[in-house]
Amino acid sequence: MPDTEESTRQESVARATERLRLAESRLARRRQTDCGPSENARAAMRFVYERSDADEDVTPTAIAEHLGVSTAAVTGILDRLRAGGLVTFRAHPSDGRSKLVVPVDRSVDLDDIDPLTAKIRRLSAGLSEEAMVEIAGFLDAVADEVDQECV
């Protein structure tokens, strides 16, 4: 017979994870209509900034691969980011058919683009290193399972 205390803990984690997934889903819907750039646009900006900071070139194809979306979807995202003055394009130095995506103002703080991530970072500051590793591993495993659902 399974340990009822362990079973209760597992159920508690499952319920908390489901609350997180539902909250994320509600946030994604709000961001689509009420709250500035979409989650994919925010993730694209983080990717562009991180690569820019690492002095690496970024192409729309690389963004699409990073986000797991089509290049057509990235074109729409980049058009909106460009219209918002956040990115611009320049010719790829070695591929005349390609373009590079570059941030317009690199002084912008990523926390301003994605304040929720900044809040999560602050929440995690109170955790032990061991707890951070465990939680990150658990959330990565949950994300992998979500990504495999209905494929």
Score class of each variant (00 low, 15 high):
106 R>C: 09
91 A>S: 14
38 S>E: 07
16 A>V: 11
151 V>M: 08
36 G>L: 07
93 P>V: 06
32 Q>F: 11
22 L>V: 11
130 E>F: 03
76 G>E: 08
23 A>F: 02
122 R>P: 04
46 R>N: 09
124 S>E: 14
103 P>L: 01
58 V>L: 00
30 R>M: 11
128 S>K: 02
116 L>H: 14
63 I>W: 01
105 D>W: 01
105 D>T: 06
138 F>E: 10
111 D>C: 09
132 M>C: 15
73 A>P: 04
79 D>W: 02
117 T>E: 13
85 G>T: 06
126 G>D: 13
90 R>N: 07
105 D>M: 07
42 R>V: 08
52 S>C: 05
129 E>W: 11
58 V>F: 02
34 D>E: 11
115 P>R: 10
53 D>K: 07
98 S>V: 00
67 L>I: 06
75 T>G: 03
132 M>S: 15
94 S>M: 13
46 R>S: 06
67 L>T: 00
61 T>E: 06
4 T>F: 14
94 S>A: 14
94 S>T: 15
28 A>C: 05
29 R>H: 11
130 E>H: 03
110 L>Q: 09
32 Q>E: 13
83 A>V: 05
93 P>K: 06
145 E>V: 07
12 S>C: 07
118 A>Q: 07
41 A>W: 01
78 L>M: 02
128 S>P: 02
2 P>I: 14
12 S>K: 04
44 A>R: 04
141 A>H: 12
112 D>I: 05
90 R>C: 13
138 F>N: 07
19 R>N: 13
52 S>V: 01
76 G>K: 08
49 Y>D: 01
135 I>V: 15
69 V>R: 10
93 P>H: 10
82 R>Y: 01
20 L>Q: 10
64 A>L: 04
22 L>S: 10
32 Q>T: 12
80 R>M: 09
51 R>L: 01
103 P>M: 03
49 Y>R: 12
5 E>N: 14
30 R>Q: 12
103 P>E: 02
85 G>S: 02
136 A>S: 15
116 L>A: 15
39 E>P: 10
116 L>I: 13
129 E>N: 12
51 R>P: 00
28 A>M: 09
86 L>C: 00
16 A>M: 13
34 D>W: 08
146 V>I: 07
91 A>L: 10
119 K>H: 14
90 R>Q: 13
97 R>D: 08
19 R>T: 11
51 R>E: 04
120 I>D: 01
20 L>F: 12
132 M>W: 11
46 R>T: 07
27 L>T: 08
54 A>Q: 12
72 A>Q: 10
138 F>D: 07
62 A>D: 03
6 E>I: 15
32 Q>A: 14
78 L>D: 00
14 A>P: 01
123 L>K: 02
16 A>N: 13
50 E>P: 00
15 R>H: 12
30 R>K: 13
76 G>C: 05
13 V>E: 04
132 M>Q: 15
54 A>K: 09
14 A>T: 04
35 C>A: 15
114 D>T: 08
105 D>F: 08
120 I>M: 05
76 G>Q: 05
24 E>Q: 07
146 V>W: 03
26 R>P: 03
99 K>M: 06
34 D>P: 01
148 Q>M: 09
28 A>W: 08
87 V>T: 03
111 D>R: 15
25 S>M: 05
63 I>G: 02
129 E>C: 00
75 T>R: 09
19 R>V: 10
126 G>H: 11
101 V>I: 06
102 V>I: 14
53 D>H: 06
69 V>K: 06
91 A>D: 13
